[in-house]
């Protein structure tokens, strides 16, 4: 059961817009990780991973799993490079739509 319950049906559509609209599949050029990404501008990036993608990424796999480590705070530079390549190749459009 949802806990923070919207009273308007429109809110569910807003949730969809902000979390999944215009997300594009990006395949990592170095491993089997496939994520969904969005770029509202050159400097903005949104990356949605799933469990399979995290498991496929050797960079994230090398993180120190102990709880007192801040290792998990790093991203994967190879994936970021793959996202840049997707932009260059025209597979990932850059630009926002009304704030999302």
């Amino acid at each position: 059961m949802a806990s923070f319950v919207p009273t308007s049906a429109d809110t569910l559509e807003e949730q969809r817009l902000y979390t999944s609209a215009r997300m594009v599949d990006v395949q990592c050029l170095d491993c089997l990780a496939r994520v969904r990404a969005k770029k509202n501008s050159e400097h903005h990036t949104s990356i949605q991973w799933n469990a399979d993608a995290v498991a496929a990424c050797p960079e994230l796999g090398r993180r120190d799993g102990s709880s007192d480590s801040r290792d998990g705070h790093r991203g994967c530079p190879r994936l970021l490079a793959s996202i840049d390549a997707a932009v260059r190749d025209g597979n990932l459009p850059v630009g926002a739509e009304d704030g999302y």
Binding site: M1, S3, S41, H43, S46, I47, W49
Partner: peptide, 20 residues
């Protein structure tokens, strides 16, 4: 706020965001 058995993958899946 969700029963442990009802936690959906998207609630815990890794998500990264960089603000411009």
């Amino acid at each position: 706020y969700t029963d442990a058995a009802e936690v959906k993958p998207e609630m815990t899946d890794r998500f990264e965001f960089e603000v411009d």
